[in-house]
C-alpha cells in the first residue's frame, strides 16, 4: 500500500484506507483492498477475489446509474484486489440514530426509497446495516456504501433476505425502532415497482430466518 494511505478499518474481507489528497481532490479517496485468504488454494483464492472485486465495482456503478447515491469509482484494479473510490464526507446512520437528534421519519422514507431503487435494478446489497448507510454532510443525501457482498439477482427471495438482514440489524443495534422499520417498508412499498412479491417473501423469511431450509 502507498505510504501516505492511512488504515481506517479492517474487516473480515478487506482493509480500508484513506488516501489524502487524491488527484487534486482535497477530500482524498477511499482505498479498499481485499486481502488473500491463506486457507484457500492460491489459484481459487485469486479467482474468487478477482471476481468479487469486479462484482463490487459493477454493483456500485449500477446503483449510481440508477440514481442512488453511492461512492463514485475512481480506479479498479482486480489484480491487486483494490478499488479506489470517492470518500464520502458524512456520518454513518448508526451514529445519527443513536444520537437521536435527527428526524427519523425523513430518514426512513429516504432509506425505503433508496432500497426500492436498488432492488428495482436487481442489485442485492447483501449486508444492509445502519453502518453501511451514510448521510452526506453537505446535502444530507442518503448514501449506500460497502457493496462487498452485493450481487445481481431478480429473485424476490434474495431481496426479501436483504430487507430481513436490515430489520435484524435495526432490532439489534437500535432497540425500540420497530415503527421506524415499518416506515422504511411503507416507503419501500410506494417506491418499488415489484414490492409485492418481495414483501410477501419477507413474511416467510421472518418465520424461518435468513437461511433457507433444505429439509423436504
Amino acid at each position: 500500500m502507498i505510504d501516505s494511505a492511512v488504515l481506517i478499518k479492517q474487516g473480515a474481507e478487506a482493509r480500508v484506507y484513506e488516501l489524502k489528497p487524491f488527484l487534486t481532490n482535497p477530500n482524498g479517496c477511499i482505498v479498499k483492498e481485499r486481502f488473500s485468504k491463506t486457507y484457500r488454494h492460491p489459484v481459487l483464492d485469486k479467482q474468487l477475489t478477482h471476481r468479487r472485486v469486479s462484482q463490487e465495482a459493477r454493483c456500485l456503478f449500477r446503483c449510481r446509474k440508477a440514481g442512488i447515491d453511492t461512492p463514485a469509482l475512481y480506479l479498479v484494479d482486480p489484480e491487486a484486489a483494490t478499488i479506489y473510490m470517492e470518500r464520502i464526507l458524512g456520518r454513518i446512520l448508526k451514529d445519527i440514530i443513536i444520537e437521536g437528534k435527527a428526524d427519523t421519519d425523513v430518514l426512513a422514507d429516504a432509506i425505503g426509497a433508496a432500497l426500492a431503487k436498488m432492488h428495482d435494478v436487481d442489485v442485492v446489497h447483501g449486508d444492509l446495516t445502519t453502518s453501511n448507510l451514510m448521510l452526506r454532510d453537505n446535502n444530507a443525501s442518503l448514501v449506500i456504501i460497502d457493496f462487498g457482498l452485493s450481487y445481481v439477482s431478480k429473485l424476490p427471495e434474495d431481496k426479501a433476505v436483504d430487507l430481513y438482514v436490515l430489520e435484524r440489524a435495526f432490532s439489534s443495534t437500535h432497540p425500540q425502532t420497530e415503527a421506524l422499520f415499518e416506515r422504511i417498508l411503507t416507503s419501500y412499498k410506494t417506491h418499488c415497482k415489484q414490492a409485492k412479491p418481495t414483501l410477501s417473501k419477507l413474511e416467510e423469511v421472518r418465520l424461518r430466518g435468513r437461511k433457507r431450509s433444505m429439509l423436504g
Binding site: S54, A57, R58, L60, F61, R64, K65, A72, L73, Y74, L75, V76, P78, Y84, E86
Partner: peptide
C-alpha cells in the same frame, strides 16, 4: 455527471 463518467471510465476492461 462526473461520478458517472468516472465510474464508466473505471469499469472499462473490468470483466
Amino acid at each position: 455527471l462526473m461520478p458517472l463518467i468516472a465510474g464508466a471510465m473505471a469499469l472499462k476492461e473490468i470483466k
